[in-house]
């Protein structure tokens, strides 16, 4: 088991409330997407899960153990942070060596193989790495340390399209070989969408929804056609947003009811995760 329970977490920084009474259960061995706009509280939540900061109230349990100051619980988690936590003068290979001391299951051979695949020069100092290679460096450590829970905060920041593709593939083959709980926080929703099993969307410090991606996608659709017909059809449905263009109207729906009796002249099309996210989190 590697379940994470987040119970009534509130985090206040000075005058701003970053998270408001967040309660969530992260099920074991699933890939989660943690989505939210800038400042929604994603990083704060991930930092709380690894006790890099302390909650104002509430608690986070990993397999029933509170994470606060808990070496055992913390050794099951590895978190890729946006900020660099490694000493600036440390070389990549010595960071690998040290990680092995803190995470005994760290697979050095695998790390070197990944470094080779991504073209990361392990004799370089961490501070001399470009933004993209810094992400690659952290991602390699995350994939190699063989922990039960991986938290990836913007893992592909600064990576080019080829490296992003390679990263997603390596992540999936790592996950298939060693199932683990993975939470990915990213703004590149479109390209990560198919990797995710479940999704958590947070908005202004509150959980907006938690659902299986497939289930969520099956509820969402775009409806377009003559304005009066669209209005008639959507009047008893859950509409996320709508836009008009002359006499035509497009409505974005998130609705479970079956799409029956669709009047002539109305067209249904797919609403993908990214569009859904945009409409859900727009102010």
């Amino acid at each position: 088991m590697n379940q994470i329970e987040i119970k009534g977490i509130t985090k206040v920084f000075g005058e701003t409330t970053a998270l408001k009474n967040v309660t969530l259960t992260i099920e074991p061995n699933k890939i989660y997407g943690l989505l939210g706009r800038n400042g929604a509280g994603k990083t704060t939540l991930l930092n709380l899960m690894t006790n890099k900061i302390f909650p104002t109230s509430g608690e986070i349990l990993i397999d029933g153990q509170n994470v606060l100051e808990n070496d055992q619980a913390l050794s099951q988690i590895y978190c890729i942070a946006e900020t660099n936590l490694y000493p600036e003068n440390m070389k990549v290979k010595s960071a690998f060596d040290w990680t092995k001391k803190f995470y005994p299951d760290f697979d050095r051979g695998y790390a070197d193989m990944l470094a080779h695949k991504f073209g990361l020069d392990t004799s370089k100092k961490i501070k001399s790495l470009s933004a993209g290679y810094n992400s690659i460096f952290k991602m390699i450590i995350a994939l190699s340390c063989q922990v039960k829970i991986l938290l990836l905060d913007e893992p592909v920041l600064g990576l080019d399209a080829n490296h992003r593709d390679l990263f997603y593939k390596e992540l999936l083959s790592n996950y298939s070989a060693h199932p683990k709980t993975i939470i990915i926080s990213t703004h590149l929703i479109e390209e990560a969408a198919d990797l995710l099993e479940d999704v958590i969307i947070i908005k202004e410090g509150e959980v907006l929804l938690v659902d299986q991606v497939e289930n969520l996608l099956s509820k969402g659709y775009t409806l377009s056609g003559v304005a009066s017909l669209v209005d008639e059809y959507i009047k008893d449905k859950n509409v996320l947003a709508q836009s008009s263009f002359g006499g035509l109207k497009t409505a974005y729906l998130l609705d479970e009811s079956a799409r029956v009796n669709l009047p002539q002249g109305l067209e249904i099309s797919k609403l993908d995760l990214q569009q859904m996210f945009i409409h859900l989190t727009n102010v």
Partner: peptide
């Protein structure tokens, strides 16, 4: 400072 960040990266509690 640097040791704290490094410890945090490696799941070491403040106590430890």
């Amino acid at each position: 400072r640097a040791n704290f960040l490094f410890s945090q990266a490696n799941g070491v509690s403040r106590k430890t």
